[in-house]
């Protein structure tokens, strides 16, 4: 149900393009630096184009990152799907099926977002060892659990804004709790799922702290490999920038893919139906 472009809106491209330039400036520096040689990196010439187009940095970065790529996917996909699903169910219950004490449960869960992860590294590692969960499953578990507050928040606030009549109609038709969820809420939650999946995928993909303490060198995800491209003393920013762009590509593809589901009118459609 695409809204027709009104001619009068064309002026919007002016601010949009201006914003695009703001967003692209740092990106431009990252991209051109990725093509530069080590001796070309200099603050004075940061805006200058590289002397030649050579893919050496990208090839070097890829060879260092590729062994970790699969580890990242194996951990990020279940972590983001599961925490999104949990968040959706929690949000549904907390917004629409409140039980006694539900209003206390919401802040209880939400508070978990603010925990400074650096300060709980030790009990986290001890717990995982005690429970016998190691490597990628442990890392995925950590991302699921520490993702629950933010996914619950997003879904609860979204569901809370939906009119109660929407549910009542389905209940009249005899749908039970899960039925209402499946038939009514799930279809119109798609934009929220997109929002939450973008968050979870990005934060799990880019996480370094949990990854480095919960996994060993055989199952390090890509961020650890990316960090490790830098030495402790001399850092080759050209290779580092090339590597960061490569490491960000899967996330960008997820954005582009999920972005297609920002459809307008899903809610309107279900209201009519």
């Amino acid at each position: 149900m695409k809204v027709k472009l009104r001619l009068g809106d064309s002026w919007l491209y002016i601010p949009l393009i201006a914003m695009a330039i703001f967003y692209l400036l740092p990106m431009y520096v990252i991209i051109i630096t990725g093509f530069k040689g080590f001796e070309e990196i200099d603050l004075k010439t940061m805006w200058d184009l590289p002397k030649g187009i050579a893919f050496d940095n990208y090839i070097e970065a890829f060879s260092k990152l590729s062994p970790s790529l699969w580890n990242s996917f194996a951990m990020v996909i279940p972590a983001s799907l599961i925490s999104s699903a949990l968040g959706s169910l929690n949000g549904y219950v907390l917004a629409k099926w409140k039980f006694r004490g539900a209003d206390a449960i919401f802040p209880f869960i939400l508070f978990g977002m603010f925990i400074p992860y650096q300060s709980i590294m030790i009990p986290l590692v001890q717990f995982m060892r005690g429970a016998g969960i190691s490597g990628l499953p442990g890392l995925a578990l950590a991302h699921v659990i520490y993702g629950i507050p933010i996914t619950t928040l997003t879904f609860r606030n979204y569901y809370a804004s939906l009119p109660q009549e929407l549910l009542e109609a389905a209940k009249m038709d005899g749908a039970d709790m899960l039925g209402v969820y499946r038939l009514i809420l799930l279809p119109i939650s798609l934009p929220s799922f997109v929002v939450v999946l973008i968050w979870q995928f990005t934060s799990a993909w880019n996480d370094f702290l949990f990854a480095v303490i919960l996994t060993g060198n055989k199952d390090w995800p890509i961020t650890v490999a990316l960090n490790n491209m830098a030495g402790s003393q001399i850092i080759s920013w050209n290779v580092q920038m090339a590597g960061s762009l490569l490491a960000a590509l899967p996330t960008l593809l997820v954005y582009i893919f999920l972005g297609r589901y920002f459809l307008r009118g899903l809610l309107a459609g279900s209201l009519k139906g």
């Binding site: 809106d9 919007l12 491209y13 949009l16 990252i30 973008i198 990005t202 880019n206 954005y255």
Partner: peptide, 30 residues
């Protein structure tokens, strides 16, 4: 602005979102 149904919405949306995908180590340095 993007909600107005302009052509190229998907491009702008991905572009504005892209910085989030890049690791802090390099965005910080840039």
């Amino acid at each position: 602005m993007l909600d107005q149904g302009l052509k190229g919405e998907g491009f702008f949306r991905s572009l504005f979102l892209f910085p989030m995908a890049i690791s802090y180590i390099v965005t910080g340095v840039v």
